[in-house]
Write a protein that binds this DNA or RNA. Structure first.
Lengths: 345, 345
DNA sequence: CTGAAAGCGCTTACAG
DNA sequence: CTGAAAGCGCTTACAG
């Protein structure tokens, strides 16, 4: 009982307590903590001393209620098992912190609809929503926008929606990969798809296939790996059951590419890149591990996050601005999983 | 301007609006959303219809302010680059969601003091704090406790603090590793430490070294890998510069163990496990990749998270209960990175 | 620059 | 079961 009282008492150092201690009004205390509050140096000093003495910290919840901005951004993630996303999350949260914002994190299953969690996150009056490695319906996106809560899709897009969307240039990057593989001498191309209904997998396949055709080759054979290591492993094996196995495989992400490499080397005893070239997408940490040296497309993650947040914050303060959609060029990182054509250093 | 108005208007569907629409009092609306609210079926129905019509969602911020519980738990993470932690985070957030709680995520640098972010997270009136892969001072832990905000350390502990602490049994698990390696025929043991001032690295080294001594072997030679892949890679190489290189290496985590494996195989052309045995700690996804097959200690992560949250929630509602400290046994997962002694299947 | 006062959107005794 | 009212801890016009 006494403990319980203690807890309540201790939590309750309010601006009134500080005002009393400092001999000023409660408004003065509030102003001392507001960047735009006009307050004299001496009053501020008095408040600071009293606050320090009492251990006062402004209550952000009360502030949110009255100011109608919580400084919280919801982050919805679906696929943290893919090592690409922890890094993305890390950058998001750090950049949020730099701007004085907080990240409210939600995890959804891959097959779960993001629409389900949106209502509960709206209850927390977040200023905006970032959705990563997941898609939401365009109706839901519109509903958020209508409620004044802007939504940004990271690495995904929904054609019809009024949502911000920042992607890597999947189509263009995939075309470069096809080009690069062709130059390296590959002629029988294969593609391992990720989760098939994602815009990333579709666009990477589209760009790759289109360019392969333009190069005059027969369209890539394909398999599906669902963006997992195991999926890539199995998909790669399946490609080598075909009468005409590929001499180059482009995987829709690195994780599948690493699975493919392990499958080819440990199971089929093929050597990479001598017999088969492999290219991935994401440039996750594992890609440069000594054992892999995976050639891959590196999306400009830092820039993408920055741009996402910039656009989101923009919409938070100027709701009337149109939602921005952008795709940034990826960079081809050349390592050792693709053979080098004769005559090229 | 009209857009701005629209935003404000649309955000403002309050319990009063619903009350008016439903022809009941505002209290009735509130009760309809409270599990303990005594309300008749018919009134509830009226409220539900009106709420549906207006698109009303209770404002969790306002609720937090009056009820003095935000249903938010802060999660502080330092080391998301280690694949062990994204998984931990995932489980934490999902379990939080199951309980109707939200996770407020903070990222700190490895060398940054967690003490720095605590004040800003306290402003958001979180009900509790989970700290993962990071340590905080015992003074700060006490300060949180005094403010009525319980703190739980996951996979770390601070001897003097009144904080909850849930760990894997690092000492015991490390002893088992020594035992297992000995049985497999290893006689010149080595240890690769993580970040040296962490309780996990220290305890794993302590248990391992103690058991190695008890077995009558000379104490393990050691190197430091700072819990990273590159660190493990370099540390392993350094061990083989010594006049008496080891025939078995226990690494304080998997990431370093994988780095060590790659170093030995690709750089020194040693075969694992024939020439050197390797054991890790964590059982991250990569450990069972076809190329590695790492023998490792698997902490009961799911149980540890559950226990952490259980203890935390307990302290949230009963502040007087003493903080619980526990360490759960890890499981040795045997794969192919340790040689099997002759005569053993 | 400063203080008194209203109000953000809820929950919860209180009285019926 | 129900409603009127107080109050959570702030911000922000408003008047000085």
């Amino acid at each position: 009982m006494s403990e319980k009282n203690e807890r309540i008492r201790l939590k309750n150092v309010t601006s009134y307590c500080v005002a009393k201690e400092a001999g000023v009004s409660q408004s003065a205390v509030s102003r001392a903590y507001s960047p735009s509050g006009s307050i004299s140096k001496s009053t501020r000093r008095k408040v600071e001393i009293a606050a320090e003495k009492l251990g006062y910290k402004p209550n952000a919840i009360a502030r949110s209620l009255i100011s109608k901005t919580s400084n919280m951004i919801a982050i919805v993630m679906a696929d943290i098992v893919n090592p690409f996303y922890p890094n993305v999350l890390d950058i998001f949260v750090r950049k949020l912190q730099e701007r004085g914002h907080k990240g409210l994190l939600f995890m959804v299953d891959r097959d779960q609809d993001v629409d389900d969690v949106l209502p509960q996150l709206m209850e927390y009056q977040v200023d905006g929503v970032v959705i990563t490695s997941a898609t939401l319906s365009s109706e839901m996106a519109d509903r958020c926008m209508n409620m004044g809560t802007p939504v940004a899709l990271f690495n995904r897009y929904v054609p019809a929606a009024r949502a911000i969307s920042i992607c890597c240039d999947d189509v263009g990057s995939a075309r470069s990969v096809a080009d690069f593989l062709y130059t390296s001498g590959a002629r029988r191309m294969a593609f391992i798809a990720g989760v098939e209904n994602t815009s990333t997998s579709r666009d990477r396949e589209f760009g790759f296939t289109a360019k392969v055709r333009e190069l005059g080759l027969s369209p890539p054979i394909r398999a599906v790996g669902n963006y997992t290591y195991e999926g890539g492993y199995e998909a790669a094996l399946s490609l080598f059951l075909l009468p005409q196995p590929p001499d180059a495989i482009f995987c829709a992400n690195d994780l599948m590419a690493l699975g493919a490499m392990d499958a080819l080397r440990t199971k089929l005893n093929l050597s990479i890149p001598e017999q088969v070239s492999i290219v991935g997408f994401d440039d996750i940490d594992n890609a440069h591990w000594a054992n892999y040296g995976l050639t891959t497309v590196k999306p400009p993650v830092e820039k993408m996050v920055e741009l996402t947040l910039e656009n989101l914050m923009n919409q938070v303060s100027h709701h009337d601005k149109p939602a921005h959609q952008a795709s940034l060029p990826g960079e081809l990182i050349i390592r050792n999983s693709v053979r080098v054509p004769v005559g090229v250093a």
